[in-house]
């Protein structure tokens, strides 16, 4: 609107005042160059509120001891302590272990399900059923698993009835059982995310290639393994990257099901920062941890995410 009316005015005044027209054209041209930047600027400025501002704030705060009183400068003490903090390293390790096992399971299961479902006449129905866990709030899913495994012990009870174990499992006192519980809840809720994407990718592939291979006598599995899967690679990478981002930030399940226990064995990095900052009010220390995570995030974003999304577009 603005641009057309502006140029219209320029034309109208062109004849009597030539110099004004020139300034006007110049301004119009500058506006034309700036226009795309102006369109994207509000979104970028808004996003800086949750990236640049917190980043700078966290960096500054990480050089202070911040408890209840005034900020006390401590230099690099927060970072030095952090690098010697076995709980911080433990949290990184837990995030990595829980995240990678969970992601690998979800990927394999989703690919298997997608392989069986995408040619099925009832693929729509399967998709709707499989989608259901994903649509519950994470906090609700956390409570489902807390109740079934810890509070009401339904899972143990079923195993006892089936004669597989004799006494109730002491899940809360075992690090690996607690980790497995977090993994199970995550696999249950988020495998559909990958499934939906994989099915769409498989359905979008050229059927003629499959048919040709089929006529040559190749089995469905061979076609899938040698033709469909390589074609799907960029899609798989994008989907896994997105899933990996969310798994590494896992919080609600830890907060509700395990509280990071036993012995900090299920404490993820998100929970570590939350506990340090908002339970012990050690904000400077938590900020130092945030800064380290921020740096790791930026490196991973540059190395992995950029490539994944660029390759998927072509």
């Amino acid at each position: 609107m603005t641009r057309s009316s502006l140029s219209g005015a320029g034309v109208a005044t062109a004849a009597p005042v030539p110099s004004a027209t020139r300034t006007f054209r110049r301004r119009n041209k500058r506006l034309k160059v700036l226009f795309p930047y102006l369109l994207v600027a509000p979104a970028v400025l808004y996003l800086m509120m949750i990236t640049l501002y917190p980043g700078v704030y966290a960096i500054i705060q990480s050089f202070y001891a911040v408890k209840f009183g005034p900020w006390r400068p401590v230099g690099f003490a927060n970072y030095a302590n952090l690098l010697n903090d076995y709980q911080f390293w433990g949290a990184l390790w837990n995030t990595l272990v829980i995240g990678s096992i969970s992601l690998a399971l979800q990927c394999v299961i989703a690919l298997t399900l997608a392989f069986f479902a995408y040619r099925d006449p009832w693929v729509q129905g399967w998709r709707i059923i499989f989608l259901i866990p994903m649509l519950f709030m994470p906090s609700a899913v956390a409570f489902i698993y807390k109740l079934a495994f810890l509070d009401a012990r339904v899972f143990s009870d079923i195993l006892i009835r089936l004669g597989m174990i004799d006494t109730h499992l002491a899940i809360q006192s075992s690090v690996w059982m607690s980790r497995s519980l977090l993994i199970l809840a995550d696999v249950w809720q988020w495998t559909p995310f990958l499934f939906i994407i994989f099915v769409a990718a498989l359905q979008g592939q050229d059927e003629e290639v499959e048919e040709a291979a089929r006529l040559d006598g190749a089995s469905w599995f061979r076609i899938f393994w040698y033709i469909s899967l390589p074609l799907m690679k960029p899609v798989i990478v994008v989907a896994l990257v997105l899933r990996a981002i969310d798994i590494t930030t896992m919080f609600a399940n830890v907060f509700i099901i395990t509280k990071g226990g036993p012995a900090f064995g299920t404490e993820t990095i998100s929970y570590f920062i939350y506990r340090t900052g908002f339970k012990f009010f050690n904000f400077g220390y938590a900020s130092a941890a945030s800064v380290i995570m921020l740096i790791l995030t930026i490196i991973i974003a540059q190395l992995v995410v950029k490539r994944a999304f660029v390759s998927s577009r072509s």
């Binding site: 996003l47 990236t51 980043g55 704030y57 900052g277 974003a301 995410v305």
Partner: peptide, 23 residues
């Protein structure tokens, strides 16, 4: 610019939670 917008999706809530809280 496009990638910057995309990359904010990677931001873990816990990382930015403290500054946002004070803001």
């Amino acid at each position: 610019i496009g990638f910057y917008i995309l990359s904010t999706r990677m931001m873990a809530p816990a990382i930015v939670a403290i500054p946002i809280f004070f803001l």
